[in-house]
Amino acid sequence: MFESKSVILYRIFAGARLALLALSSVALLAGVCSPAIAHPHSWVDYRTEVHFNDSGEVIALREVWLMDPMYSMSLIEEMRNDGKEGQQRLAADVNRTLSKGHYLTHLFSGDTSGKELPIGKVKPPRVEQSGQRIIISFDVPLKKPLAVSAEHPFSYQVYDSTYYVEFLHDPDDIPIELVNAPQGCSAEVKSADPDPALVAKAAMIDQQGQAPDGLGRFFSDTGVVSCRGE
């Protein structure tokens, strides 16, 4: 009958601690598993041109982005509100954002797991209105011309790492055009086939805002240009 005070207290606290632990881990898990702001709210259909020099090396990637209808409308409104200088102001804005973000472009020799190729200076993008859509276009020059072969193709990806905007090659257009390419060169678009485990990891890290690259990369198309030697 005289069960000691400490025994009861001990039992109560042991139970409390365990319950605490279990519940907080469940909640944490559930919470961690729901990343913050990683889902596309807008999209871009783009096409590219790969430019070669006369020695058959890749010198630049030209990108033409077609913004989605809803976003285009908002941008057109923005331009109209700014009156006469609307277009220039929008172009300047786009230029500032894109130059800060490496033009969302990633170039590689070989596959996309390697080191990124450095890019040269990009001229301010052109922003124009075509019907109800906005088109943004610009050239990304390579710092050094790149020799392309079957073993070492030229590959590129365009993505918004936070996946706020989704970038895919335009299904209604010729996705990649080769300009001044030597004989035996060909281009193809590889659709993303993301590894679920990596996506899950990225989604979790994303929540803490520490992801060097968020979800966007995993859902990005890859353009691949390869050339067979003469």
Binding site: A36, I37, K100, D160, G209, P212
Partner: peptide, 17 residues
Amino acid sequence: TAWNTTAAGSILGFQMS
């Protein structure tokens, strides 16, 4: 996180890391 992603307010909505 929200405070540190200032670029979310940029015109294109792109968030630069």
